[in-house]
Amino acid sequence: MSTDPYRSLLNHLASCTDDTDIEKLLSALLTDKEQHEIANRIRIFDLLERGVTQRDISEQLGVGIATVSRGAKAMQIHDLSALLNTHRQSS
């Protein structure tokens, strides 16, 4: 029986009830740099939604304009309101 590894990861994350378990899993799966890049992507989404210009976001976070542009494109495709609400509540 073949299982899609990405789907397995999603199912595992969805079944986690403890933030510590999720943190341990992501620490095992992602390098420090990858974790930082994901966190920056969420910051990019948040700043874009707040109306900050792409150039200002690039300068503020120290990322390339292409990175910010990819984030803007992702926001056009996906509804990220739940993620952003969670991000703002934990900030």
Rank of each mutant, 00 (worst) to 15 (best):
A14H: 07
L25N: 05
R43W: 05
Y6H: 12
S91H: 11
R7G: 01
D32W: 06
L48W: 04
Y6K: 13
L80N: 09
S27K: 07
S81I: 01
R70H: 12
Q54A: 10
L48N: 04
D18I: 01
D19E: 13
A14P: 00
L10W: 01
D18L: 03
L61K: 11
G64T: 14
G51V: 04
H36T: 13
A72H: 10
R55S: 15
K73W: 01
D46A: 11
R43Y: 06
T3H: 05
R50A: 15
A28E: 12
Q76C: 05
D79N: 10
I57V: 15
L80V: 09
N11Q: 08
I44F: 09
I44E: 12
S69E: 12
A82I: 14
M75I: 01
Q89E: 11
L84T: 09
Q76I: 03
D21I: 00
S58I: 10
N85L: 09
C16T: 08
L10A: 08
T31V: 05
E37N: 12
I65K: 03
V63G: 14
A39H: 13
T86E: 14
L10S: 03
H12D: 12
L48S: 07
I77L: 10
A74Y: 04
E23T: 15
D4I: 01
R55K: 15
Q35C: 09
D19G: 13
R41N: 06
P5G: 08
E23K: 15
A82R: 15
V52T: 15
D46E: 10
R70I: 05
L80S: 00
R50Y: 03
Q89A: 14
P5F: 05
T67M: 07
K24E: 10
E34A: 14
D4P: 01
L47H: 09
A72W: 10
E59V: 04
A66C: 01
H87C: 03
D32F: 06
E49D: 15
G64Q: 08
L13N: 08
I57T: 09
A28G: 13
E23P: 05
T3F: 04
N85G: 04
R7K: 11
L80I: 12
R41C: 09
D21C: 05
S69P: 02
L83H: 04
L83E: 08
I77W: 01
Q35S: 14
T53D: 08
I42E: 04
L48D: 03
